[in-house]
Design a protein around this nucleic acid. Structure first.
Lengths: 227, 227
DNA sequence: TTGAGATTGTTAGATATTTAACAAAGTATG
DNA sequence: CATACTTTGTTAAATATCTAACAATCTCAA
């Protein structure tokens, strides 16, 4: 292993560039697909082709975490997948709570791909009396006022925020008070949380705007080629 | 203006780094918020603080598209916002069609933030006979078999894919056949489309895995600090 | 068992992105 | 109307990321 550990092997995964981190789930998905097809081995060249990146980059990314391949052979799919799962922390079960039982919240609650990987939504909360008490994917929606108390009794690692932007910060504060370690935020707002809490945003609107920009750019390109 | 135009002013927005493009929606949202609060002026320092980046970066990002500020004053919020809207292509109305009327599709169809910015879902399609004919947010769900024919009669710019991964490629092909210009893909699969079509992925699962990685990293950090 | 071919992990070089620095040009105030 | 202050747009330096190159070493077929 190259850069990941210091002498006593304790300081793992420090200083991994965010650009590398963002590629890890891509490797995970590709390897899952290969494993499902019962492919035994894969080379950095093949992985790179599927990711549309350079083979050197695949090797360098992986080398930040260890030596998982073999010269002249490549990587054993099952082994590399299990190592990447460990790196991503999806080997153990992770408990989550979801706040916001609207359309988006229900979509997230019903999304099977998380559960498959050990991410379990333990409880769902909402503010709206018309939603509280109803059932979403076999879980009764609880009153958000019980959120912090619930978490103290039933700790969870990740809190999912699917509320409108106006309520998101308040919910985040309650999640933090309940001892949550990470927040997965779908509300289009920048949350403030203590340094000890991890934050990951999913801003759907921003993604659409990026597509819009690319479209505009490509149209101008084509227009100019015709001339 | 520095790098955006060539001599005759036609080749706009070429060669903008993707890292910059990804920040543009952030600027857009911040400026919208400031405009809503009727703030008149803003400096690169203030924008940078809210984006958690360096003021130089804000100025350099913007300078790729033009000169929108004034020495000693900063940027006029309303003007900069309108320029960024132009850059992102959210000044005109953009027609979209959505394929997949499941939980996620319904959530996207009901999401108000797009419509506010001129992105209109004109029609919704599904494969399931139990869903076809039902109404989602005032639009009747059509049979996906009609998709290509519909698009030929009623052109749209963007196709949204909210189907399971297994159906996504087929839907993408039909969208392309119907003359769609860009695809916004929520299915966890890498789509193949012609070079002329723009693609933007939203991989919810990948975002959760990144959060999981960060959590793991932070926990090890804290564990080591205690020692 | 040997040798040709393949592929890793790593180092060094090339490229891209971010940050610092500063002249230019405005604002604001007395 | 002069002057101190502010802040941009831009150039150059610093940093980060990506790519090429290659020794080391394994595979595989004969």
């Amino acid at each position: 292993m190259s850069a990941a550990n210091n002498k006593d092997g304790k300081y793992k995964y420090k200083g991994i560039p965010l650009t590398v981190v963002k590629r890890l789930p891509g490797y995970q998905r590709l390897l899952s697909e290969l494993a499902a097809k019962e492919v035994e081995r894969v080379s950095s060249r093949e992985l790179a082709a599927k990711m549309k990146i350079n083979p050197s980059q695949v090797r360098q990314d992986l080398s930040l975490f260890g030596s998982f391949g073999q010269q002249g052979y490549g990587y054993r799919v099952s082994y590399l997948l299990s190592e990447i799962n460990k790196i991503l922390g999806i080997n153990a079960e992770t408990k989550m709570v979801l706040v916001g039982g609207g359309q988006l919240g229900r979509a997230v609650a019903n999304y099977r791909n998380f559960a498959k990987r050990g991410f379990i939504i333990e409880a769902i909360f909402d503010r709206d009396p018309r939603v509280i008490g109803r059932t979403i994917d076999n879980r009764v929606v609880r009153d958000v006022q019980e959120l912090t108390a619930y978490l103290q009794a039933e700790p969870a690692e990740i809190g999912i925020i699917c509320t409108p932007a106006s309520a998101a910060q308040e919910v985040a504060d309650q999640l933090v008070a309940g001892g949550i370690k990470g927040i997965w935020n779908f509300a289009p707002v920048a949350l403030k949380v203590p340094e000890t809490v991890c934050l990951e945003h999913v801003h759907l609107g921003e993604s659409l705007m990026i597509l819009s920009f690319k479209l505009k750019q490509k149209q101008e390109e084509l227009f100019n080629q015709k001339k």
